[in-house]
């Protein structure tokens, strides 16, 4: 899909696209190094080191890695369970790498699913995610309320035979807003989230609360509003009997009247999109 947008917008988006590409490169590089016996902690550390070497100092959230049935968030009750554990990777196991680096003030938030060797269930899930990417873009362009889109995605998952696993995320979000963050010398993080990014999210939440929108795209009433212009990190997450798969990438929403320009994916040259194109 080619989209024309104004030069100014394009310049502002370039930084975001670059860091998103960098993050996906990191995911592919780390995924290629995964071997049986590697733990989630080690995989998370590998992502962190890879990105630090390339200049990343701040994070929207620190890298996550989930192996085996943790990809489907089986028995997740408290948010602490999202953090990497000592679970070891075994042949055929599915895995998900999720990271959100900030580079030059631009944030990326990506999710990369794969498996160590062949895993037919995981492959099937990945193939079925394509329909969700199309559905979300189509309905955002139709300016449907976010809550309705959420429910439509839910319905599609159920029809496909899967469980909605993004429901396990804090507030059950399928997406959240990301924005530029200020570059500071110190970039502390709180429960795995960058302080600057949290600040941005909190200020959005405050403004949104006054104006009737929310930076969190959830199944709840506070998301009952049309898509808000900005950058949304969208992360539909499918689960099927102990195997999970997701992608996460940035959706650009503008206030343009032209449907093509009103919403588009920041980048169409990503591993999962290339994969679907190859399968066609």
């Amino acid at each position: 899909m080619t989209t024309a947008w104004s030069g100014e917008l394009s310049a502002r988006l370039r930084g975001f696209r670059e860091v998103q590409r960098l993050a996906y490169e990191c995911a592919e590089a780390v995924a290629a190094q995964l071997r049986p016996g590697v733990t989630e902690r080690e995989a998370a550390r590998m992502q962190r080191a890879w990105l630090r070497e390339r200049g990343v100092r701040d994070w929207f959230h620190l890298p996550f890695a989930w192996f085996g049935d943790r990809t489907a968030f089986v028995n997740f009750r408290v948010p602490l369970q999202f953090f990497p554990t000592d679970r070891r990777l075994e042949p055929g196991m599915p895995f998900i790498l999720d990271m959100a680096p900030v580079l030059d003030g631009c944030t990326a938030d990506i999710g990369y699913s794969g498996s160590l060797g062949a895993n037919p269930v995981q492959e099937r899930l990945m193939a079925d995610l394509e329909a969700h990417r199309d559905l979300i873009l189509r309905e955002v362009r139709e300016r449907r309320p976010l809550r309705t889109i959420y429910e439509d995605v839910d319905r599609l998952m159920v029809r496909q035979g899967y469980a909605n696993r993004h429901r396990a995320y804090p507030f059950g979000v399928i997406a959240h807003k990301v924005d530029r963050v200020k570059q500071r010398r110190f970039s502390p993080h709180l429960f795995g989230f960058g302080a600057q990014s949290l600040k941005g999210l909190a200020s959005d939440a405050l403004h949104g609360h006054r104006e009737g929108w929310s930076p969190l795209w959830s199944p709840y009433r506070f998301s009952d509003h049309p898509p808000r212009p900005g950058l949304w990190a969208v992360e539909p997450h499918l689960g099927f009997r102990g195997t999970g798969a997701k992608f996460e990438e940035i959706l650009v929403v503008t206030d343009s009247g032209d449907p093509e320009e009103s919403a588009f994916w920041l980048d169409d040259d990503l591993p999962h999109v290339r994969r679907w194109a190859k399968e066609m």
């Binding site: 037919p120 269930v121 099937r124 029809r159 496909q160 035979g161 099927f240 009997r241």
Partner: peptide, 13 residues
């Protein structure tokens, strides 16, 4: 369609 889908996924697991 949904019966076919169930059968297909059943074979996968």
């Amino acid at each position: 369609e949904s019966a076919a889908r169930t059968a297909e996924l059943s074979r996968l697991i």
